[in-house]
């Protein structure tokens, strides 16, 4: 199976939407009020990216679907986000570890996409790259503080890193997007750069890079963990109760 551009765009849009939703769940529960504001901000940036990507998906698909169609009217098996972003928030350390792994991959992805031969994606990448650079400053800054903070925070940070590590390989690129790459629509592999950058952050945080444990994947092909369905059920419930309504 070869992935087409629509699949690629939905993978990115779903990634941004699901992670945005997870971060929004922190609002009113964050460790400081400043952090409530910070996490809401990142959530909003990701939501904005998702909306652009879904709108573009609708154009590519050509069936008149708008952004809300892709968010509210597809079931879990139709979502193409990597498993990492649907993982529950856990404690703040789990969220931060998930975010560092994601942000580093997203930054490299968007940087490469500024060169895409697809003008829409290249334009979106120029903005998303700046947003993501700030997200990474935020998440890496926290991981370093947690890793090099107290004994408890170091223990929790390491546990968060270990728990999220098995979901990272899937972030580093799909195995079925070779044709898109050949056409210059998407960039080359980010794996080497990601591994080097993440190892650097973990080192500065005084945390161990986990050994290559069993990796879990499947989200980008529609095979999800048990966590996506309840997330979507909550998100879609109201919209689906009123088909055809506008809000």
């Amino acid at each position: 199976m070869t992935a087409d551009l629509l699949t690629h765009v939905l993978r990115q849009g779903d990634r941004a939407l699901v992670l945005s939703h997870r971060l929004a769940q922190w609002i009113t529960h964050a460790p400081t009020l400043e952090e409530d504001v910070a996490l809401a901000n990142i959530s909003l940036d990701l939501l904005g990216q998702a909306r652009h990507l879904f709108t573009y998906a609708g154009e590519i698909e050509g069936k008149g679907h708008d952004e809300d169609h892709f968010a509210y009217w597809r079931d879990a098996a139709e979502f193409r986000n990597p498993l990492l972003v649907e993982q529950p928030n856990g404690d703040f350390a789990v969220t931060i570890a998930r975010q560092v792994f994601h942000d580093q991959a997203a930054l490299l992805y968007w940087e490469s996409m500024t060169e895409s031969t697809d003008a829409t994606l290249a334009a979106l990448a120029a903005r998303a790259r700046n947003e993501t650079a700030f997200h990474l400053q935020h998440s890496a800054g926290w991981l370093i503080r947690l890793g090099d903070g107290t004994d408890e925070s170091q223990r929790r940070a390491q546990a968060g890193v270990d728990a999220m590590w098995p979901f990272t390989l899937e972030l580093l690129g799909a195995d079925d997007e070779g044709a898109l790459r050949a056409d210059g629509l998407i960039g080359g592999s980010i794996e080497t750069a990601w591994r080097a950058a993440v190892a650097g952050t973990l080192l500065e945080a005084g945390l161990r890079t986990p050994t290559e444990a069993h990796q879990r994947a499947g989200g980008i092909h529609g095979t999800h963990s048990e966590h996506l369905e309840p997330l979507l059920e909550e998100m879609q419930q109201l919209a689906r109760a009123h088909p055809g309504a506008s809000w």
Binding site: L17, L44, G48, D68, Y72, L238, A245, S246
Partner: peptide, 13 residues
Amino acid sequence: TRAPSLRRKAILT
């Protein structure tokens, strides 16, 4: 987490 459209979700956030 339950807003009925992405636009409303962004506004409410």
